[in-house]
């Protein structure tokens, strides 16, 4: 088939323009996928699930060989113990008397409060980012299971991300290490109640800043979600690894190591987006 060069050039220009427009419209997520996309996703999802299970089995089998020089068992045991201690610390901090006083005050002023952190769904990861950016994955739960767009995704280690697009029985998830979204945080410390935001920087780092330039934050501080934005409060984000003071902007830039290992996520919890509920 021979296409006239003039017509071919116009075809290329029109195709590129259409694609750029499509990308622009869809790049920040859509409320609902098209029927065709949903149908295709639903068809491949069972195949992805089987292949991912096979992949996970292979990964587990080859893990010792691939990580010969790492003390993986001791490391995993230490991490488990540390996570338990962190969870206990969050529980204790949030039960402090002044926090209860603030809750009473909030009730008295009739403020809305999110109380849905215990109402979660679970799902399996069936496919992962085809590139090496670790920004996206697919789960095997969708609208039919109660998943909503922008629903929070987390696991036992902490915050993972949010739902980007949702089909009938599957959904695409964008992680916090993707530089698309921001997460508002607070320091897990009853004396230093400073807030800020972080966003994706690399596959194992977040970068952000405190709202208050005078606020104190140090390497080793634990960060949890503050409740501002789409994420409920109290979900572990990670640990501060570096604090850099920028004299030009007067902001303190922080680097945070997420608690979640984004390369090895198999099962996730989902908190659907709901309207905030009055107490």
């Amino acid at each position: 088939m021979t296409i006239h060069p003039h017509l071919r050039n116009w075809l290329v220009v029109i195709t590129v323009l259409l694609l750029v427009i499509t990308i622009g419209v869809s790049v920040n997520g859509r409320e609902r996928m098209t029927v065709v996309e949903d149908a295709l996703g639903s068809v491949v999802r069972p195949i992805q699930k089987v292949l991912t299970q096979a992949s996970n089995s292979i990964s587990e089998f080859t893990y010792p060989a691939r990580n010969l020089f790492r003390l993986s068992k001791e490391n995993a045991a230490l991490k488990t113990a540390l996570l338990e201690a962190q969870r206990e610390l969050i529980r204790q901090t949030m039960l402090q008397e002044e926090y209860n006083d603030l809750r009473e005050l909030r009730k008295a002023l009739n403020y809305a409060q999110r109380n849905d952190i215990n109402n979660y769904l679970t799902a399996n990861v069936v496919a992962r980012d085809p590139g090496n950016w670790y920004g996206m994955f697919v789960i095997d739960a969708g609208l039919a299971e109660g998943v909503t767009e922008s629903a929070m995704i987390f696991n036992g280690n902490g915050l993972i991300g949010q739902v980007f697009e949702v089909g009938e029985h599957w959904a695409k998830v964008i992680t916090v290490i993707d530089n698309r979204g921001t997460v508002s945080f607070q320091i897990l410390d009853d004396k230093r109640n400073f807030d800020g935001v972080v966003s994706g920087f690399s596959e194992d780092l977040l970068e952000g800043y405190l709202f208050d330039p005078e606020g104190e934050i140090f390497p080793g501080d634990q960060l949890i979600t503050s409740g501002l934005g789409v994420y409920p409060n109290g979900v572990m984000i990670g640990e501060v690894t570096e604090v850099v003071e920028d004299k030009d902007t007067l902001l303190k830039t922080i680097r945070v190591k997420p608690n979640v290992d984004f390369k090895n996520i198999d099962r996730v919890f989902i908190i659907p987006q709901k309207n905030t509920m009055m107490e």
Partner: peptide, 16 residues
């Protein structure tokens, strides 16, 4: 098209 639909971040990214 298949990559964008199944795992893509924006429809048309991988296609372009």
């Amino acid at each position: 098209v298949l990559t964008d639909v199944i795992i893509g971040k924006g429809l048309g990214t991988h296609l372009l």
